[in-house]
Simulated scan of single mutants.
Amino acid sequence: MTLLTLSSRPTPPVSLTALRNFAALRGQLRVSLGPECNIACWFCHNEGDVPPGTTREDRTQQPRRRVLCAEHYVTIIGTLIDQGLTRVYFTGGETLASKLAKPVLEGMRQFAAPDVSFSLITNGILLARSMPWLRDTALDKIKVSLHYFSDQSFRGIAKTRLPVSTVLGGIDAAREAFGRVELNTLLQKQNEHEVHAILQYALERRLPIQFIELVDTDFNASGQSAAVPADGLVAHLRTLTREERVEIAGVGQGRRVFTIDGLEVEVIHRELGRHHVGQCGSCPLRPQCVEGFWALRLDHAGGLQPCLLRDDLRLDLTELLATADAPAAIATAVAGHVASFTEGTL
């Protein structure tokens, strides 16, 4: 497969103000390579598509049909990088469970630049076996989801018989190959008794960690009673350090950042607010929205979504990929979509 080289293409003559403002506020491009996954966490939202766990329990609920190939992904991602987006996160499902992971991640090398970052979000299970080719990609960061710290909680949360040592081994493999490895942990009743142990694990290994309060979606509605607020963790962190700051600038939820012996521990805390734009003003789902506009989400069916809760605001890019100048057409469409979303005219 020959991957397109886009960095030399001229910028199409469109208004990019809203898109570039979003990028300047540290907005993310989250790229889902598909719903494939080797576990089935109950809270998964699959970037707005039907999650693997939901399909496993009810075969009538299937994710969208795959449309994009590796070259399509490279075209779209490269176009958006050319137009100002600099923070790209690869997600799933489980990114490394996708057959497209290797060609897409290797295709990012042509866009590597000092101001562009590529992050892999993974459950860690396939990290060790993928390391021989992963270390040669343009990835800047590996972010491992560590929502469990025992075989029992791993089984209860992720519906798997694998030992949690599989994940911890993947973290060790990533630490040997990458300078930047981080953790994230969703606060929930199933791991409430292990949160302090996970924190200690991160501190001992000098791994920055982010604790997250549950984001409500239709897919996790049945488990929302398992959500745990961050207040207790925040109180505990204040016994460990006096270095605390609040970040509410930019996009996404506000966060508390604690520095313990030089290591940052973030807590995504819903009481700190979020970044809303024009389209959010009249949105019927705003009362349950704790995130606002912080990411553009590209899915395997060729859709680009500015909001996790509103798939009716999804932009279909598939027809544009077949045009004579696909990058120019995609840049124009995305810039217009973001502008309309920001202004509240979609």
Rank of each mutant, 00 (worst) to 15 (best):
L120E: 06
V31I: 14
L168W: 08
R180T: 12
F149T: 08
R26W: 03
R255V: 13
C37Q: 09
C44Q: 05
P51C: 07
G303E: 01
F90W: 11
E243H: 12
I248W: 03
Q190W: 08
H45E: 05
L25S: 08
L309T: 07
P132D: 11
I142M: 08
L240S: 00
A18K: 11
D58C: 13
E271P: 02
A333L: 10
R109E: 05
E244K: 06
R59G: 01
A23S: 07
A173C: 11
D151A: 10
L168M: 15
S225N: 15
M1F: 01
C69Q: 08
G336E: 15
A333P: 03
R9L: 11
D312P: 02
D311C: 05
G84A: 13
L317S: 00
L304R: 02
T122G: 09
S119N: 06
D311P: 15
H193A: 15
I209K: 03
N46S: 14
P63N: 02
T95A: 15
R59D: 02
L309V: 04
F211K: 07
R66E: 10
D312R: 14
G169D: 12
D172Q: 14
I198W: 03
T241E: 01
R30F: 02
I157K: 04
R64E: 11
I330G: 10
C41I: 10
L85E: 13
G107R: 13
L16F: 09
F219S: 05
Q28C: 01
F90T: 10
V14K: 00
D261I: 01
K189V: 00
T217W: 08
I171W: 13
R59Y: 03
T17A: 11
V195K: 06
W294T: 12
P163G: 14
L308Y: 09
M131W: 08
A101F: 15
G303V: 05
A23V: 01
R155E: 12
D58W: 07
L3I: 13
R270T: 04
D316T: 13
G292T: 04
R135G: 02
L139G: 09
V14T: 09
G34R: 05
